[in-house]
Nucleic acid binder design. Structure first.
Lengths: 279, 279
DNA sequence: CGAAGAGTTGAAGCTCGTCAATAATCGTGG
DNA sequence: CCACGATTATTGACGAGCTTCAACTCTTCG
């Protein structure tokens, strides 16, 4: 595969701690997120809190799920960042998405035979471990939670499609700018973005390259152009967006697909509403 | 947008009929497909047949769903082919996937506010129209159907991720070869592929280009190389795969993510099993 | 301090895109 | 049936975008 991997359970010496507000403890980001997708009562929220009570502090580079394996536990990111990726036989890697606090990894795995991609921690992270059976029971008992989870899955699908459009059709600078806009919008929604609009995600240029389908060298040159234009700053793996509006125009970014606003829960979701467990 | 569109309801003069066995009437491809994902009883299959009883013959280029609109009906492809795509502001288009007989367009739309992409008919097609409410009721009453639909959605997600890996990391010839392998595998599973392994999908090189993120001109040259290598033949929008095994190796194609085999229903899907309707 | 990781730079060249023109095919109407 | 326009496929010349290779710097951390 041409790349080293740290598998679950192995010791990892170098860790990359999350920077800034991302490392602050938060009550239950899953509940906060799901509230965007459907009105949840106190009972629902309490249930979600109980569901996420088992937490672990894990080091960066740990694999939460490995391509080809089966998953018995669902993980929810409490603090920190994770990311999904797939390898090609020749060692090239495509990053498929980033998991921020409140994101699950991965409901889909539960109903598939095996995971088709790998999920690793980008930073040290606090993670809630949710037994599959317990999640299933919760969905069975609380339809509004199931409904919100379905909506969350739909948004994940929309992100993936937008990502494909990005990699397939935009040029290098636009691609990178679009990725930055998406991450910034999601972080802002979490209240994780500081006043200076610095992203609390410690991305290396290698990861950036694997995200947008370019080489590190070229990504580096694109970043220099974005910096020369005073759109962003970059130091020590940390991005700062200097001119949000111009960056958005460069990227052709329209955040509506992320369904971050209040409006997300207004329409839709009336027809098919929730999972129900059966087995 | 730089491209003409044919919206639902408008008259279309030029149509592209599906070639070969694709145009044969089949009983209910949805039932056949879902059986791969979970054991369905006679009762389930009968229900699926009733669900798909309303059928329409539609002309190619018709839009089944338009980006930004809301959907009240779910469509199931009975015969023919459809495809999903998104536009960029500058008119560039990324094709996100192809819908073959048995595929739904799009369960996800039902629970989202609006569709984030457009779905159009590539060929003339027979389509079953399923009222959203009826589908919801079916899922509520028949958990095994809901479970199978979830599995189908999971496979769609896996296809999308593989597609992104393809566009992001493979070179031009590999990309095209991989797309061919995927389509061939799915068609073969439908029993739609003739002895000569000719695909019954009338693809233009423009659509190929928009699928893999290349220009038409370059796609044309890649096709010539694949033809020179005696891996494929191409005439009148019709692909024939001459050497399946070598094409597979060129593409680095591994069909396991498509979950086409019997094994699909063996493990998994025990935890969370089905949708349930709520509203 | 030394080693490893991350970022930066330059030179060279291949892949792929752009422009533009021509040929082949298809569908339609005369 | 043929002629026509529109779509699709093909070809050549040229150049830009991106990759590759390789070296070097800077930072991080033990």
């Amino acid at each position: 595969m041409g790349r080293e991997r740290v598998i679950l359970g192995s010791v990892e010496l170098r860790t990359t701690p999350a920077l800034g507000p991302l490392s602050l403890a938060r009550p239950n980001p899953l509940g906060e997120k799901l509230q965007r997708y459907g009105a949840l009562g106190q009972h629902d929220l309490g249930t979600l809190d109980r569901l996420c009570r088992n937490r672990k502090n894990l080091l960066s580079n740990l694999e939460l799920a490995h391509e080809g394996h089966r998953l018995r536990t669902v993980y929810m990111i409490v603090t920190g960042v994770a990311y999904r990726y797939k390898f090609l036989a020749n060692g090239r890697r495509q990053i498929l998405g980033y998991l921020l606090p409140g994101d699950l990894c991965d409901v889909e795995f539960l109903l598939s035979n095996y995971c088709d991609h790998t999920v690793s921690l980008l930073t040290d992270a606090e993670v809630a471990t949710i037994p599959a059976a317990e999640l299933a029971q919760t969905i069975r008992d609380f339809p509004s939670i199931g409904r919100a989870l379905m909506q969350a899955a739909a948004v994940e699908g929309a992100m993936l499609r937008e990502w494909l459009l990005n990699v397939g059709q935009r040029d290098s600078v636009e691609r990178i700018a679009h990725l930055f806009c998406e991450l910034a919008a999601r972080m802002q929604c979490l209240g994780e973005e500081g006043d200076d609009l610095a992203l609390s995600i410690p991305l290396t240029q290698v990861e950036l390259a694997d995200s947008v389908g370019l080489t590190v060298v070229h990504v580096n040159r694109c970043l220099q152009r974005l910096r020369a234009e005073k759109l962003i700053a970059w130091n020590r793996r940390r991005l700062t967006i200097l001119d949000h509006e111009r960056l958005r125009r460069v990227a052709g970014f329209d955040k509506s697909y992320l369904k971050l606003g209040r409006s997300a829960q207004l329409s839709g979701s009336r027809q098919i509403a929730a999972f129900a467990a059966v087995a």
